[in-house]
């Protein structure tokens, strides 16, 4: 699992590569939260194009970040999930975050 960050104005773009499960989501959460606090941003885009596997731990991860971003009045969106990831996203209310 790897994660890269880019800033576009007030938006933090998070590109995740590899697999998201309970094991990897803990480190992802730490990295995403610390970057979100350190950078002068209020919105977040999560790019899932490089994610090859995601179970419900990914739903928990995204929902947690959604709450964090919402708490500072920002918006969060998801980009480029693969079809197998879309199936998982459709099971929760974060499916409508796909832009």
């Amino acid at each position: 699992m790897d994660v890269r960050f880019k800033r576009d104005g007030m938006t933090l773009i998070v590109s995740i590569e590899g697999e998201i499960d309970h094991h990897t989501s803990r480190l992802l959460k730490e990295k995403m939260d610390s970057k979100f606090i350190m950078e002068p941003v209020k919105n977040m885009i999560i790019d899932l194009s490089g994610v090859t596997f995601m179970d419900s731990a990914g739903i928990g991860l995204i929902k947690g970040r959604m709450d964090r971003v919402s708490s500072v009045g920002g918006k969060i969106s998801i980009r480029n999930p693969k079809p197998e990831i879309i199936k998982m996203l459709k099971m929760s209310n974060i499916y409508n975050l796909i832009s």
Binding site: S56, K63, M88, M91
Partner: peptide
């Protein structure tokens, strides 16, 4: 507290 989605069995 672990940010679990509560969807394990549902999945």
């Amino acid at each position: 507290e672990l940010e679990r989605s509560g969807m394990g069995f549902t999945v």
